[in-house]
Amino acid sequence: MTTQTQPMVLLKGIRKHFGSHEVLKGIDLTVERGKIVSIIGPSGSGKSTLLRSINMLEPPNAGEIWLNGELVNQPLTGRAYETHINAVRQKMGKVFQQFNLFPHLTALQNLTIGPIKLKGVSPAEAKVQAMELLAKVGLADKADAYPARLSGGQKQRVAIARALAMRPQVMLFDEATSALDPELVDEVNLVMKQLAAEQMTMLIVTHEMNFAAEVSDWVLFMEDGLVVEQGPPEQVLKNPVMARTQSFLRKHLAS
């Protein structure tokens, strides 16, 4: 089996519960290399938890997570688990709703610390690569600024660049624009579209139906820890089959 034929991300029967509350009730998903999958659904439907389980920030209770042919949630413990999961996470870029930039580091240092400390890249080379990425997200002039001096949109663009600096195989976006003022959403969406054009494999949890329709190859509608409906965006977002999807979209498109 060559890596070319393997899906980039493969989820099999993912289940997660917090106490007696079941948040994910068996999710299956296949994301092929270079594809973009959007996950939509009401608050509390489990879409963020699903995304968090993929890089084991929220380890699932059952099921399998595969990244490019490698089992992510291996039954390891202690040091062996730490070593394994730290290596796997380097291959998955994560973008948070609240940006979570490191406030004590400049924008540039936010990008270089990962490659330098985790991948042994020389500081000089890490800096060159980081500057390229900052230029790509349109923030080369902010390299020496601390996060406190950046706007929300700029912070999120730095955060995306930080994730990209690790050269991940897949990018996970958890409501990347939900904490932004409306007029700052576009600049972040633009960067994400640019990534999409470069064939980056992406999983996007979002509340923006128009954006999902525009960039996605596949859309998942989740509710109550289950996938209610999935398919290409033209189908799920424009002509949904399920009544629940229809009513959700009616509310969302009306607002």
Partner: peptide
Amino acid sequence: DPGQTEASRALGFGRLATLRHFILPQALL
């Protein structure tokens, strides 16, 4: 902020490295 730990772990930093590079410097400041 717990988000700092999340961001660090998501990048692939271990527990100790997270403490050393992100949590302790910010706490000290």
